[in-house]
Simulated scan of single mutants.
Amino acid sequence: MADTVAPFPAGGARAQDALPPRELVQPAEMHFYMAEEYHVPNGTLLGFWLYLMSDCLIFACLFAAYGVLGRNYAGGPSGAELFELPLVALNTSFLLLSSITYGFAMLETQRGRIGATLGWMAVTGVLGAAFLSVEIYEFVHLVGEGAGPQRSGFLTSFFALVSTHGLHVTFGIVWLVTLMTQVRRHGLIPENKRRLMCLSMFWHFLDVVWIGVFTFVYLMGVLP
Rank of each mutant, 00 (worst) to 15 (best):
81 E>T: 07
171 F>T: 04
43 G>D: 06
56 C>K: 04
72 N>Y: 14
114 I>G: 02
38 Y>D: 11
24 L>Y: 09
117 T>Y: 01
179 L>R: 02
180 M>D: 04
112 G>S: 11
19 L>P: 04
60 A>N: 13
220 M>L: 15
203 W>N: 14
215 T>V: 13
2 A>F: 10
78 S>G: 15
191 E>R: 00
206 L>C: 12
32 F>Y: 08
132 L>K: 00
192 N>F: 01
167 L>Y: 12
20 P>L: 10
145 E>F: 07
23 E>M: 13
148 G>Y: 04
129 A>P: 04
23 E>T: 15
43 G>K: 01
112 G>L: 10
182 Q>I: 01
51 Y>D: 00
29 E>C: 03
21 P>A: 15
35 A>F: 05
32 F>C: 06
46 L>H: 12
60 A>P: 08
144 G>Y: 01
164 T>L: 10
184 R>F: 06
165 H>L: 08
9 P>D: 14
196 L>M: 13
121 M>A: 05
18 A>C: 15
83 F>A: 06
75 G>V: 08
126 V>Q: 03
212 G>C: 12
114 I>P: 01
186 H>K: 03
94 F>M: 01
87 L>I: 10
83 F>E: 10
16 Q>F: 09
196 L>Y: 09
111 R>V: 07
143 V>Q: 11
118 L>G: 04
94 F>Y: 07
45 L>K: 12
102 Y>C: 07
120 W>S: 09
8 F>W: 14
27 P>F: 02
210 W>V: 08
24 L>V: 08
153 G>D: 10
33 Y>G: 03
157 S>M: 09
177 V>H: 12
191 E>T: 00
